[in-house]
Design a protein around this nucleic acid. Structure first.
Lengths: 238, 238
DNA sequence: ATTACCTAGATTTTCGAAAACTTACACTCT
DNA sequence: AGAGTGTAAGTTTTCGAAAATCTAGGTAAT
């Protein structure tokens, strides 16, 4: 039995957490991405143990994992800190993401099948609805972030390489922290940007298998996001 | 004080292990790369604890880390196994490595400074000597692997992105396992290949800042390695 | 014969305390 | 004053046992 090649690979979120280790990892990760712990903040084991109501073993494992994802930094016998931010790091991250997301997108366009197209259309629909709601009342920023992330994940999910997708997801998470900080700093998104239209054109090019065009649109999308956040990051660095 | 940009980033090996966690990680990782544990082999905590003489906590952390590097796979409450091998996985890995190593090399050529050139020359010299020795007596295969790995690490070390280098290192380690298996299967390297000359030209192009040429040479180098190992991997899969 | 259920043994996961290490502060000596 | 030293408190790391979960084998019911 040969496995279908163009099918999107599983989105490794929504699997049930069967261990304290796993739930602690998700909880702490979420707290880091929301910047509940500020960059460079010290993370003491006792505090975290109390906060999540767990013992040291699962906590240490969760932290070890988050270190390898670049969200925290641990020094032997000296404790852990939230990874710091800087303009140079932000730009390095942004540049690398263009390379990686681009490579993944190109392969997904090459290999994506009907199911991929359908899931992409579905993810876009979710995004569309939340954007509509956002323009009325202001609530639901978390939901928007969730659906935006999901769209981009689905977009490249058919690339065929679990490795590449995992690395992309790590970079996406690192960038999410910067996005969140920049958003909190500027109090709200830039209104002059038609983010939904960007995604629509990106999806259209992908489904039409226009690889070059899709990658260019993706590059522009990422670069614009970077530019809009840059001034905020610049302020936050000092 | 601004940090020098073209300088090679630290090679995160040779730092002293201050914790049992760290030494266990290195020990187990080394055992996996040498295929002391075969692909798909079950890894029981008790066995490993006995083997390395450690408690569960550092062992679990080490294994958790190796899972995130794709060398083992852990299922909740069911135990751990050495990651399996397959032709499709091998080819996916090889293709991704060309992309990632290529991207890193291009940037290193762009940004590398005098120190980078000097370290590269040094790494090549080490490789040269071990290759000479290899053609006389047959011993020292481990040393060759070490110096070969070091050369390629130094080659891209000036790329400026810690993230990219770390990801590259993970892929390199995964490939090392395939190389090792293929080598053991075919009993010795292909004599018709002038590996040293490939590296010499690669270095020359890099130092001469001929980016396109260097990347092409690197691609060929990787592809040739892949092709030579492929038949062995094909046999081993069944 | 097959399925469902139960139990004992094997294995993994988690906890809490002990051990190892770092940091901060007071003290002494030059 | 400043450098060095020792000690106590704070923090991280590790161990060993207890708890939770999985697996295999046997028994009973259909």
């Amino acid at each position: 039995m040969t496995k279908a090649v163009g099918q999107p690979l599983a989105l490794d979120d929504e699997s049930p957490s069967r261990t304290i280790n796993e739930t602690t990892y998700r909880h702490l990760r979420s707290d880091l991405l929301r910047c509940h712990f500020a960059p460079n903040a010290r993370l003491r084991f006792d505090e975290l143990r109390l906060r999540y109501g767990v013992g040291v073993s699962p906590l240490r494992e969760a932290m070890s994992r988050l270190q390898s994802e670049g969200l925290i930094e641990i020094e032997s016998h000296k404790g852990a800190r939230v990874t710091g931010i800087s303009v140079t790091d932000f730009l390095d991250l942004a540049e690398l993401r263009i390379t990686i997301e681009g490579a993944a997108l190109a392969k997904a366009i090459e290999r994506g099948d009907d199911r991929w197209e359908a899931e992409l259309a579905g993810a876009f629909q979710y995004l569309l609805r939340v954007e509509e709601r956002m323009s009325e009342d202001l609530a639901g920023n978390d939901e928007r972030e969730l659906r935006h992330g999901r769209f981009h994940t689905v977009l490249v999910s058919a690339c065929g390489s679990r490795r590449l997708l995992d690395f992309r997801a790590v970079l996406y998470a690192q960038a999410e922290r910067y996005r969140h900080l920049a958003l909190a700093y500027t109090k709200g998104t830039h209104p002059k940007r038609d983010s939904l239209e960007e995604h629509r054109r990106l999806m259209a090019a992908a489904v039409a298998r226009k690889s070059k065009e899709a990658c260019a649109l993706l590059r522009d999308h990422l670069q614009l996001t970077t530019e809009l956040a840059l001034s905020a990051v610049r302020e936050l660095e000092g």
